[in-house]
Design a protein around this nucleic acid. Structure first.
Lengths: 113, 113
DNA sequence: CAAACAATTAAACATTTATTTAACTATTGA
DNA sequence: TCAATAGTTAAATAAATGTTTAATTGTTTG
C-alpha cells in the first residue's frame, strides 16, 4: 500500500452509497451479491450503483464475476486490511501506544473473531 | 460510529495532503506537531493546511490545543480505531473468516505492537 | 430470431471540493 | 505601542464528483 492507492481507496469509501454497498458486501461474505440485488437493498438506481461499484472496483476494494446474466460483486478483504494497516503504520513513531493493534504481517492474518 | 460519521471521516482522509497530515500526526505521537511545522513537512501553504486540518478536526480525527502563538495538532487515535472497527463490523455475516481481527471492544484496546 | 431481463455506458447538469491571494486576529517581545 | 510571527478566514476561481434519463451491450428463453 502506498499513499496514492490509499487515497483512492478512502475516496471510494467516502460516500454514503458506496460505503453502504461495501459494508453489505463485507457482511455478505465471499459469495457476494448480484448487482441488482444490491441496488434493491440500497434503494438506488442501477446506473447509480454501476457508477459507484466502478469506483470501488478501481480501488481494488471489490471484485466482480459474471454468472449468466448476473454480475456478482464481493468484498476484497485483503485490500481492506492493507488499507487499515497503512493508516496505523508506524503509529507513535514505533513506541508502544494504546491504539496499536497486531502488527501488519506480509502473509494472511488469521485471527478468529 | 454510524454511517454518516464514517463517511465524514473517510472523506477527511481521502485527499493526499490530509492523509499525509494525518499520518505525520499519527507517527508524531500524542504530543503532536505545530501547524507551521506540519505545513513545512507537507510542503503546502498555511491557508491550505488550515483548510485541510479543519476537515480532519470536524471529522474528529485530530485535536488541537493552543500554546502561546503555536497551535499543536495531534491524532485522535480512538476515532481512528472506531472507524476501522466500523469498516470490518459483522464481517462475513458473523461467521469466522480470514479478515476478521480482534473484535471491537467498548473500552480501550490495549495491545502492544 | 425476437422479446425480456441484467447491467453498463453516455451525456447533461448540479453540486462539492481544492487552491490561491489577500486580509484579518492573536500573541510575543523590542 | 509597534513590528514580527503564527495561524485562520474570506472570496474567487478551477476542478472533480454525483445524479438523472436515455441509449446500449450481453444473456437467456419463448
Amino acid at each position: 500500500m502506498n499513499r496514492d492507492r490509499a487515497v483512492t481507496s478512502l475516496a471510494a469509501l467516502a460516500q454514503a452509497s458506496r460505503l453502504d454497498a461495501f459494508r453489505h458486501l463485507v457482511q455478505a461474505g465471499p459469495g457476494g451479491l448480484a448487482a441488482g440485488e444490491l441496488a434493491g437493498k440500497l434503494g438506488i438506481s442501477p446506473p447509480a450503483l454501476s457508477f459507484h461499484l466502478r469506483g470501488l472496483a478501481q480501488a481494488g476494494l471489490v471484485r466482480s464475476r459474471q454468472q449468466g446474466r448476473f454480475v456478482y460483486y464481493s468484498a476484497a478483504y485483503d485490500a481492506m486490511q492493507s488499507l487499515v494497516d497503512f493508516l496505523t503504520e508506524n503509529c507513535c513513531g514505533g513506541s508502544a501506544c494504546a491504539p496499536a493493534r497486531a502488527p501488519a504481517r506480509k502473509s494472511t492474518t488469521r485471527r478468529t473473531a
